Simulated assay, not measured.
Amino acid sequence: MNVDIVRLLHQHLPQLYVFTRVAGLGSFQAAATALGLPRSSISKKVSQLEEALGQRLLQRSTRQLCLTDEGASLLVSAQSLQGVLDSAASLKMAQQAEPAGRVKISSSTLIGERYLLPVIPELRRRFPKVALEFNITDEVVDLISQRVDIAVRVGHLPNSSLVAKKIGEKSWACYAAPSYLARAKPLTNPRELTQHPCLFFKNSQFAMDHWTFANNDGDTVNVAIDDAICGDDGRSLAALAAMGLGVVFVDPLLIQPELAAGSLVPVLTGWRHPEASPIHLVCLGREARNRAVDAVWQYLGEAMGSLTVDG
């Protein structure tokens, strides 16, 4: 076969594969049964290949199929490539099929609970053949070594082979339970936090034990937090603060149920962290991700939307 024909056949690999199955099995129905496709789809793919080549490959009748001379010649040429055709066509047809496979998703605990998990039922409805594996942790996760396909990351990302889509921003402010504030010393200035038990995030790589504040006048204060209660699970810290154990420095985005219920209320309302950090959905580049990962990536980017709220 000349170069132009080879290129044309490459462009119509699924159709060529179907043609070889029809010719080998002797009928459209037998090929349809073997491939798990409707008979009409089999007939259409053969017609598409004939149109692309400008040649009749099969003579059809109500009782049998016969190869034309051109069809017989093509079948002989294709048989020498049958192993490649079988694997490559299967991959090509799988790409055109419904997304299927396993996708591993990583997120911090609070973002995972509040914003990732609620969109999973619809994701499963759309892609029932995609199996999901979750890595919900506040530890820093290496996507490559731990084989994570998609992750939610907070903060500015270093240059890497990952692609990122900004889905929101994370801010910080102080909150406490009304039961705690009823018995605690007044709290009107960030420097007074040294007189209050505080709850802060700490894991093996990072400790958020210095809280920075700015007010509307442009004043900035940095407070070193005493080691009262710390932990590596943001969900637990918010729950403990709601129990009246002290002041927590957290993104209002992630404690909306507690704020709505009144179990946490804002304190130091004239002060908040001077900078917001971006929230990204990150993933391997398109050339390195399969159809299942790409489908989940696209869905999460739309479903999680903008995570920024006023607090």
Rank of each mutant, 00 (worst) to 15 (best):
C174V: 02
Y175K: 07
A176I: 12
A177R: 00
A177M: 07
A177G: 04
A177C: 10
A177E: 07
P178C: 01
P178F: 00
S179H: 03
Y180M: 00
Y180T: 04
Y180E: 01
L181Y: 04
A182N: 08
A182V: 06
A182P: 04
R183F: 01
A184L: 09
A184F: 09
K185D: 09
K185Q: 14
K185P: 02
P186H: 02
P186L: 05
L187F: 04
L187M: 05
L187Q: 07
L187A: 10
L187T: 03
T188C: 06
T188Q: 12
N189K: 08
N189V: 11
N189S: 09
P190F: 01
R191S: 12
R191T: 15
E192N: 02
E192M: 14
E192F: 06
L193K: 00
L193M: 02
L193G: 01
T194K: 14
T194R: 12
Q195K: 10
Q195C: 04
H196D: 01
C198G: 06
C198D: 01
C198R: 11
L199Y: 04
L199G: 08
L199S: 13
L199R: 06
L199I: 07
F200V: 05
F200W: 05
K202E: 15
N203K: 07
N203W: 03
N203P: 14
N203L: 06
S204Q: 13
F206M: 09
F206S: 09
F206N: 09
A207V: 14
M208P: 00
D209N: 15
D209A: 14
D209K: 11
H210C: 12
H210K: 13
H210V: 15
H210Q: 13
W211S: 12
